[in-house]
């Protein structure tokens, strides 16, 4: 595949979008982990599901605000879902920006439902048996549908960048895979952070999350190196791996954000009781560095 060339204009997707990609990734990852915990783990893991659901909705709400603020005409945000020319829903399955708007909507609805069910459970609201719905079949159905949305939502942002003619972004097709790996990893890190701060680090749920994160980090490292290799094969790696962005990518993402948490997970006594907290914070920073480096690589 020859690299994309020519004098392309950059879309000026800067801080709003970098934070959207980062926070949206955490929301998708945290929700996915919560749903999997709901569907496959025992009761010991219930706190994981609750935390995941409780952080997904606020994050996705922030994401919506960020996206609207980024628009040149913010009050026309609903044009994403409704085509005012044809007066029909606006949906293009081949355009990530278009179907992504629907994914955000669907994922937002699932996050909202899971959030409400979790609140009912925590507050012990007994009307209609609401406090038991979350852990029951209703909660599981919502979780299964929401998990599917989370996987698509957590990866469409990569497809969005790939489906362009910009250098770096348009020179590969694996950002969808890389971004969902980063989403899962940062989602786990967010839950570990809250869990470890609230309950100490030694619980079984934290151990399970660390194991899941070790796998996610390993996959992410492979994908990150594959991305650099693919870009190098068409002579387009430099915008991403050289200069200050290279420092962000190699130092921020690979070293501090991926390798350091990996080592800390495998040697959990390195910094005493706060080791999981440090690993989680580094993981989150690494996820942010990844989104920053990739988004800026085609716009500097």
């Amino acid at each position: 595949m020859p690299p994309v060339t020519g004098n392309v204009a950059d879309p000026h997707w800067y801080w709003w979008i970098i934070f959207y990609f980062f926070l949206g990734g955490i929301a998708a990852g945290a929700y996915l982990i919560a749903a999997l915990s709901d569907l496959f783990a025992d009761r010991a893991n219930r706190p994981v599901a609750r935390i995941g659901y409780l952080i997904a909705l606020p994050l996705i709400a922030v994401c919506g605000v960020l996206l609207i603020l980024d628009l040149g005409e913010p009050l026309r945000f609903w044009h994403m879902l409704w085509n005012v020319t044809t007066n029909r829903p606006s949906f293009k399955y081949w355009s990530p920006m278009s179907y992504g708007s629907w994914l955000l909507t669907g994922f937002g609805i699932c996050s909202g439902l899971s959030f409400v069910l979790t609140l009912a459970e925590l507050r012990g609201i007994t009307r209609f048996g609401a406090h038991r719905l979350g852990a029951g079949i209703v909660g599981k159905v919502v979780a299964a549908i929401g998990a599917l949305f989370a996987i698509f939502f957590g990866s469409y942002t990569g497809a969005l960048l790939n489906a362009t003619n910009q250098r770096v972004w348009g020179d590969n097709t694996i950002l969808g895979a890389l971004f969902i790996a980063s989403a899962v990893s940062t989602g786990i890190a967010a839950i570990v952070l809250i869990l470890a701060l609230r309950r100490g680090h030694d619980g079984l749920p934290v151990q399970r999350l660390e194991r899941a994160d070790i796998f996610a980090i390993a996959v992410e490292i492979v994908l990150l190196l594959a991305l650099v290799g693919l870009l190098a094969s068409v002579g387009r790696a430099n915008p991403l791996i050289a200069g200050s962005l290279g420092v962000v990518l190699w130092g921020g993402t690979l070293l501090l954000g991926l390798l350091a948490p990996l080592v800390l997970y495998l040697r959990p006594r390195t910094f005493g009781a706060v080791t999981p907290v440090i690993a989680a914070v580094l993981g989150l920073l690494g996820g942010f560095a990844l989104r920053y480096a990739i988004i800026m690589s085609s716009q500097v």
């Binding site: 698509f152 990866s155 990569g158 497809a159 790939n162 348009g170 097709t173 969808g176 895979a177 969902i180």
Partner: peptide, 10 residues
């Protein structure tokens, strides 16, 4: 790139 990237992500 839409299908390869989205499919890889999923």
């Amino acid at each position: 790139a839409t299908v390869p990237s989205q499919l890889g992500g999923v």
